[in-house]
């Protein structure tokens, strides 16, 4: 069978589908001072998966606000800098108008994913951390 670390080199998704892969990738991103990018990506996935049951609205609103505050509000933050202004205003609008939708972070997640695929993921595959691991 293919060892997991070879699978990680196939695609970003194979890497993010494996606990050890995520752990190593996060260690690399932390070195580069951009672990927030990965945390944001998972926060978006987690938000989409939130229970849609009644009575959960308050929790979802609180969570949407927390994601907005931590990653998007500060325009100098590593995540905020890599999301399009239109996408950021859309999210801001949703939060301000209390219009909480499971897909409200989808576009931002797509943009951040593209940055990872073009930038940090290829760098990770060439990094000492990954090469030493393999």
């Amino acid at each position: 069978p293919t060892p997991p670390y070879l699978k990680w080199a196939e695609s970003l998704h194979s890497l993010l589908d494996d606990q050890d892969g995520i752990h190593l990738f996060r260690t690399f991103l932390k070195q580069e001072d951009c672990a927030d990018v990965l945390d944001f990506w998972f926060a978006c996935s987690g938000f989409r998966k939130q229970d849609t049951g009644e009575g959960n609205e308050e929790k979802k609103l609180k969570l949407a606000k927390a994601i907005y505050k931590k990653y998007i509000l500060d325009s100098n933050g590593i995540v905020s800098r890599q999301i399009k202004p239109a996408t950021k205003s859309f999210i801001k609008d949703c939060v301000m108008k209390l219009h909480i939708d499971p897909a409200m972070f989808d576009q931002a997640q797509t943009e951040i994913q593209a940055v990872m695929e073009e930038n940090t993921y290829p760098l990770f595959l060439k990094s000492d951390i990954y090469l030493e691991y393999t």
Partner: peptide, 20 residues
């Protein structure tokens, strides 16, 4: 009451793959 950080951490963990 969950603090915002706890809520965020819980959300991030919920999206991670489970141990195979």
């Amino acid at each position: 009451i969950d603090s915002e950080d706890d809520l965020l951490q819980e959300c991030i963990s919920s999206a991670m793959p489970k141990k195979k």
